[in-house]
Design a binder for these strands. Sequence first.
RNA 1: GACCCGUUAGCUCAGCCGGCAGAGCACCUGCCUUUUAAGCAGGGGGCCGCGGGUUCGAAUCCCGCACGGGUCACCA
Length: 499
Amino acid sequence: MEVGVEESSPLIRERQGKLEKLRRMGINPYGSRWEVTALAGDLQERHRDTPSAFFDSEAVTVSLAGRLMTLRDHGKTTFADLKDRTGQIQVYLREDRLGNEAYGLMKWTDIGDFLGVTGRLFRTRTGELTVAADEFRLLTKSLRPLPEKWHGLVDVETRYRQRYLDLVANPEAAAVFHRRSQLIRELRQFFDQRGFLEVETPMMQTVAGGAAARPFVTHHNALDMDLYLRIAPELHLKRLLVGGLERVYEINRNFRNEGIDTRHNPEFTMLEFYQAYADYHDLMTLTEELLPHLCRVLLGGEELTYQGVRISLSPPWPRLTVVEALRKVGGIREADLEGAEELRAVAARRGVPVQAGWGWGKLVDALMAHLVEPHLVQPTFLLDFPLELSPLARSQPDNPRLAQRFELFVAGLELANAYTELNDPQEQRQRFEEQLRAREGGDEEAHRMDEDFVRALEYGMPPAAGEGIGIDRLAMLFTDSPSIRDIILFPVLRPKEQG
RNA sequence: GACCCGUUAGCUCAGCCGGCAGAGCACCUGCCUUUUAAGCAGGGGGCCGCGGGUUCGAAUCCCGCACGGGUCACCA
């Protein structure tokens, strides 16, 4: 954003004046390269126990760079805190050490400026590790005042709209994104070690398949055709199983044209992985390894606290079929679980909103969402979902109304969804056709027909199981964040003002 | 989409039974060579989100709008 005259506050004008002054003195307020030999946080860690006397006898010279976070001017000396990507360290500037001319430049220096500093380490009277500056250079002049040092940046809207300020002012916010990055790194390692191949499949698709959701539409000019932003990578990943890759995973964005709330952002990050010759029971086992592993690496144990609730990820986790869950957790009588009419009556009685045309499967789904899922705080697998809701999953051999499918819930959040994949092309075609009928019946989220996918299955896809894990929700869990916006750097917001 | 809450200085917040717009930090001037929410003395800074209404008078009361947060609805 340009600093327009019309919006320049006195504080900005003040800084602009300093910038002009520096320019006239022949100093570039937007300096360039600076040789960095040390990092603030690393120094703090390395010298945590180094006694003052050590620095008196041994000259430890360091060169670092960062943003000026505080300034304490004492006349002929100044204390400052310099912040880099690893932390902060105090800098001590003395007129007698730097010379009048160099020290005088502090007058035109502000909190928020980027500085390069070289000097010797020492400990102050109060014991704080400090760099006594022998030289410093302005690397970037800051024209706008940063949020206040004590409370940081609190305003939620500004934190999301100007995330850079959140990251500068609130160390906890930066820590969340470090942990998110570590989580994804660890996921990759986990799957790489197990022989999975990381792949990238199209984000722009001619048929938005693999999930029940409304897509975003865009247009390709040269080809003069509409394309959809993907709602899931599933159908492409399974084509790769046909291609013989056997174990694949993808960590990437999905886009769904839906409402926004604390657990939904229109673009979100999903891990999907597929393993040939496995079924959904194998994936439950794998998931019971994966989450505790991530928790150990990130948090140092298999327990975590989410929004004040203690959660243990130590396996094994309870496995409840959907029917059992509705009975035990939802408190629905067994007799009421059999038919659609009975379920409809239960929904009405329990205040669960349902739509007129819904069959048994959709009613089960609605009742689960309201009466069961919010209560699943400790990790719980729900299994054997209605086949009606799972057009890409294989059915139960002993009950064709149910799919070989599970979902994992932790802290009331749906974290994973997996099933034994349907690989019978004829049955797949029929399932797509049923979805098309639902779509014609007004279900905008029903799956679309994907002829090429069916053709791929006709060549033969090995038996396989696949799973999707919502990375954003995992990140929420591992960073104790109440909203998905806290773990997405730039969440979708309505533009403010004219734009 | 419905309901509730919020929007006051760069930041964090008071002020809201209508009567001159406040504090802390930040900023400016002066002093200060180991401070750390540095200190001391002085000073400047406001479209009270936007638009309308009621009133002698509105940051304050009423209506509408915008943006944000929450709950619900919708939805993986």
